[in-house]
Design a protein around this nucleic acid. Sequence first.
DNA 1: GCAAGGTC
Length: 741
Amino acid sequence: MHLIIAEKHIAAKRIANILAPNKLKQVRVSGVDTYEFGSEEDKKIFIGLSGHIVKLDFPKAYNNWQKVEAKELIDADIITASTQVKIVSALKKLGKQATEVTIATDYDREGELIGVEALKILEEVNPDLKFDRVHYSAITPKEIEEAFSKPSKIDFNLADAGHSRQVIDLMWGASLTRYISLAAGRLGNMFLSVGRVQSPTLALIVEREKERDIFVPKPYWELSVNLKTSTDELFQVEHKTSRFWNKEEVDEVLQKIGDKAIVSSIATSTKTDKPPTPFNTTEFIGAASSIGFTAANAMRIAESLYMNGFISYPRTDNTVYPESIDMRAQIEIFSKGPFKEYAKKLLEQKELKPTRGKKETTDHPPIYPASLAKKSELNEQEWKVYELVVRRFFATFAEPAQWETIRARFDINSEEFKANGARLIVPGWRWYYHYNSPEDRLLPKLQEGDELKVLDKKVEDKETQPPGRYGQGRLIRIMEELGLGTKATRHEIISKLYSRAYIHGNPLHPTKTAYAVVEALEKFAPTISKHDMTSKLEADMDRIAEGEIPEEEVLSESREMLFSIFKELDENKDSVSEVLRAGLREDKIIGKCPDCGSNLMVMRSRKGSRFIGCEGYPDCNFALPLPRGGKVIVTDKICEDHDLYHITIINSGKRPWNLGCPHCNFDEWQKSQEEEKKNNNGKIKPKKITDISGIGKVTAEKLEDAGVSGVNDLVEMDAFELAKTTNIPVKKIRNWQDAIA
DNA sequence: GCAAGGTC
């Protein structure tokens, strides 16, 4: 039997379909769907993995953060544990029967490693297996048939390169995460994380914020004039000095402006505007981000569109369509349905020549629409993303757009003014892809020497702006430029920074905790705070892949570096703690106490519940409540009424909750309680069963077992019946019922 | 409870 292994289930199925001479048979092995064809003697079985099916970790003995010193992780044993139990067991079953194996995972470094992981499992049960490797960059009949007709060898060096990355990421990430968390006294779910990709990314955000912190705005003035033509058309012109840095200077010019302007020159030209390149993941996220999607959301939606067959694989670096995809056929799919006018127009072209981006890779094709979706099949958000992919796809085949531009100059009492106009004359690709299209700036028909009337003049006060904070799309583009993360992980890294309470909002604001972590790393473990570590790793991995050096050499060099960083950290233990704790403390300050002027801080009571308390305690008792669960993030937005910072609460897996000013929030809550009292004869109706006094967690569970799932159930149910089933005295139940109603 | 990388 010949076993063929793909990186994902859907790839195994599609490859099997292409290679099968007739119908495929679907067989379930250990709970995993496999596909087979051929006679008993000459059978082929296809199975898909789920990316990596094993992961690296430390042995259990290292699990205790307090008892095991962080630096022990540097040369600790590393074990592999299977993360996909069913698939591993299916592989073992099939491995026993197989005589040969073909690794058909994705055509990139991780794909090679994933293939070797599977091969190792197979060899455990069948050491004599023959194996080979096939390469393809799109699952089309042409590529698949070609790939399987000339298989090549597994590149073990390439897999080793991938493996070295796993080991280095684990030992650096885990050891430094523990060290920093312990130094800051932040354990449990409040731990502070450090990593080869996340830390340099965080440093970028902090660096930008620091530039903003030290930015000093500079005032300047803009001078503009409204003009009227002889045919009563109005338009605005600006002084050729677009920014006056000096008020006297602009006032002087203002004085000179009379009531007449002369057109001193007119220059018309055309500008072509090239169609965009095919979408890879980064470009897709950038485009989705500019129409209002977060990176994680755009990817989540793309993933579901892909799983339903509407678009091609969304995780790709490639910006060049492979030749093996029949583009005309792909566009013809859209000659009916909502995009038919666009498809038809494109198909009129004799030759369909797509644009090419700068990156050409072997992993997957660029993202393109794979099938026609009906609007009713998708929700609003999914449709928006799908439409974006369709329109981008079309745009890559379309003609350039053309703009007519006009540069006009005017003379007003020897002062030069200017106006620039632009008009789209050939829409080209912009007709297909209408996103972020600049608007026409029209000027009236003008000729040199025309005399115009000056209607009014104005000077505007402005000031220079600090560099803008990064939006998610922009940050992901920068990460790609610096080689940080991969197409599949960049958006996840950003999500991770949010969930660690390092950043909040969009564009991204770093917290003071982020400042502190970055400062501590830059001072005492600079390697991990810079993107160069990744560049160096990439270079080392290339050398491993080329067979120039063994993996072990790269690992031992990396261990030495990490040991020396730990030496530095240990020598400066107190300063590390100090830097971290100062930042952490700042993130707890909400503002000044309205009663005594001391700091209001996020605090924890002896019982463990959180609240906002005054540092002047016990002289001052001012306090505000906080929600029980989630991480509290003190934002940099200030309440105008109370001068306190707004608060956001994050719970893992949920959207952040913008609670706003904690004082306003409390006032509103009090108001709503009073309202309810008024409407309920002075009583507040409990919302949850546990809100009723006398009902704790255990009793609530008892009641729930008896069918009481809410406060209303408790009122409506017969007290006697309930007493029987729960063994709670009738009197107690009656008391509760009275308390509610 | 740690990383980053696959994929669902």
